[in-house]
Design a protein around this nucleic acid. Structure first.
Lengths: 226, 226
DNA sequence: CTTGGCATTCTTGTATACAAAAATCTTGAC
DNA sequence: GTCAAGATTTTTGTATACAAGAATGCCAAG
């Protein structure tokens, strides 16, 4: 065995493999329906099939790959319909966060959201797409946390992470950033007033519109392909 | 190998093991924090450690067990706080279903919900707890389906399943069944009118754990711990 | 009697070996 | 030339073997 050089071992080999594979699937390194060959991947990661299989099992539970018995595992990228559905659910989950946060949010967190928004605005003006993206993530992360419900927060992070590659696309659309900023402001305003209904409505339409934008983008891409 | 008798093999050995273990954890066969010994369980299921480990991996991703590296896996029953959080999320997810269903539900499905309610009522009058439980499940299943969002439906089923053992505890309360029935009726009425707000509010308060239900849940948890 | 250090044991994590099922290739008949 | 059935090969699923880290117990020193 070729150990000896890297025996830090703070986490299992299969953990890092699962993480790496998850990243590769989310990045789109693997196409939809592509078969993930165990022996091939094992060689590539310089491990035996055992830890690799464990990693694949985990991905299968997460829904990133589908496991057909005695056939192999195939990457399972969400289609247009499923993506829309996931965005819909994301919108509802964040609306739930806002509902709770309207009553539970702390002054510090409100200030933090405002600060994140300000940095977002600065990024927009500086045409700093990455900066905008980072602060946008931060804004939503605060909202999840301020729901005061750790389970809800966790579920939100999970789905948010899953949708990451698709969210990035629609930010390229012209004028979307300014509109998105305004929506963020509306959310904060409603939270400040403690208006649960307004806050949840604001964040719901903010997230839902992302799904619709994405859908439009897909449609235009599809028609362009023909 | 001791096969020979049951080689149907429509699914993997590790699949059935995972299912069985999941059931045992949900049933409360294993106490919170209990360590699941690999070799011991392997002997019990008459398999090697390999498929058993794969099953445990899956449970770990589902969150039913926690895996501490180089230490073992420990069952992780939700505590009171997490339980409340999960019920909160369940309420919000079902509220989302109702929101969508108010616009999307079919006449057939509406009729099916009314029929389920009628059978529920009959079960109440016949003091048939199991029958009530079954039809209640059916009612909620229809709601999930009629959200018209397969992803949402799936997430609802997942959490619903996770909460099953704790939901059963609540139904024993005297008078709870009649109240629950009335709430179901309110949901159907709102869906029939296409009133998304009313429907989501009705189902949310139906599922949410508040007031007496809260105390009941806490009491049953406490007594279950002893 | 308590406590710290060391050795042993036990368990997990990984590698390899083997068996069964599916996929592929070959060969023969029409 | 095409199609089908059998053989071969590939690949998954499981079992076993081995290595490394953690837990436990033992012994000695204070």
């Amino acid at each position: 065995m070729g150990w000896s050089y890297t025996c830090a071992m703070t986490q299992k080999r299969s953990d890092t493999i699962a993480e790496t594979l998850e990243g590769m699937i989310l990045d789109g390194t693997f196409a939809d329906g592509e078969r993930l060959d165990e022996t091939q991947l094992a060689q590539r990661f310089s491990v035996s099939r055992t830890p690799l299989r464990e990693a694949l099992q985990r991905l299968a539970v997460s829904g990133l790959v589908e496991q057909q018995p005695r056939r192999g595992v195939f990457v399972r990228q969400p289609g247009p319909v499923e993506l829309l559905e996931m965005f819909e659910v994301m919108a509802e989950l964040e609306a739930a966060c806002a509902r709770f946060a309207a009553v539970r949010i702390s002054d510090d967190a409100l200030a933090a959201m405002r600060a994140a928004n300000a940095r977002c605005q600065a990024a927009v003006e500086a045409r700093d797409a990455d900066g905008y993206y980072r602060e946008n993530e931060h804004f939503h992360a605060i909202l999840y946390r301020q729901s005061g419900n750790a389970y809800l927060e966790q579920e939100c992070r999970r789905l948010h992470r899953r949708l990451t590659p698709f969210r990035r696309l629609q930010l390229r659309l012209r004028g979307r950033l300014a509109q998105s900023m305004a929506e963020h402001e509306a959310v904060v305003a409603a939270l400040e007033k403690g208006d649960a209904q307004a806050a949840s409505d604001a964040i719901r339409s903010h997230v839902a519109v992302q799904g619709e934008k994405f859908h439009n983008l897909m449609a235009s891409l599809r028609s362009a392909a023909e």
